[in-house]
């Protein structure tokens, strides 16, 4: 009797352990849903710009561009290595990707900023990183990024690096049509 009880208790506890191991992995999708709901760390959508913001002609900030690929058979470069902008001034730059393989490959770009805290002042209106990009065999595509620097950006920021990394995404993108339309290839 006692032995049967201990086995039953132990079995319950083992189930708890297995469930909690699964829970650890469930936190991954849970956080992505939570972040989307609360609009935290959303990297794949246009930023809101304040309508009242004026161009600050007294300051010039250099924006440098950096491009990286992670396990992707593409070429990826910015058509201009850097631009000089005034805070508040709408600016368009162009990036170029080309697929070196004879098959269609999908990739997603992710932006990052140096120094990291300027990310909150770097407002992107249009970006190829808002959606997945699918390149046909040997296709080359030019993609614009339209951005504006928030004039509230700290005065000591003279140079910003915007870095993109493209990584491969498996499978078909449900938003593929939208993606092609937006990137305007």
């Amino acid at each position: 009797m006692a032995m049967a009880d201990t086995r039953k208790t132990a079995l319950h506890l083992v189930v708890l352990v297995v469930a909690m191991f699964g829970f650890g992995f469930l936190l991954v999708p849970f956080y992505s849903v939570l972040c989307n709901l609360t609009k935290q760390n959303v990297l794949d959508g246009p930023d809101e710009i304040r309508a009242s913001s004026q161009v600050d002609m007294t300051r010039t900030v250099t924006v440098e561009f950096d491009t990286n690929l992670r396990r992707l058979p593409w070429e990826f470069r910015a058509l201009q290595p850097s631009v000089q902008v005034h805070p508040g001034q709408l600016t368009q730059v162009v990036f170029e990707v080309s697929n070196e393989k004879n098959r269609a490959v999908s990739g997603q770009a992710i932006p990052s900023y140096g120094p990291a805290y300027v990310g909150q002042f770097f407002k992107k209106v249009e970006c190829f990183c808002f959606s997945r990009q699918t390149l046909g065999p040997r296709e080359t595509r030019q993609m614009p990024v339209v951005f504006v620097l928030d004039p509230a950006i700290p005065k000591d920021v003279k140079t910003i690096t915007l870095s993109y990394t493209f990584f491969e995404v498996e499978g078909n993108d449900p938003r593929q049509g939208q993606s092609d339309a937006r990137s305007g290839a």
Partner: peptide, 24 residues
């Protein structure tokens, strides 16, 4: 029992990020 498996999960994800091409 509630949190040790979660640590195991987290470091397993680190391990697969390191060696098996995942990107958690």
């Amino acid at each position: 029992l509630a949190v040790m498996p979660v640590l195991a999960g987290a470091i397993t994800m680190l391990l697969t990020d390191r060696h098996f091409g995942t990107s958690f």
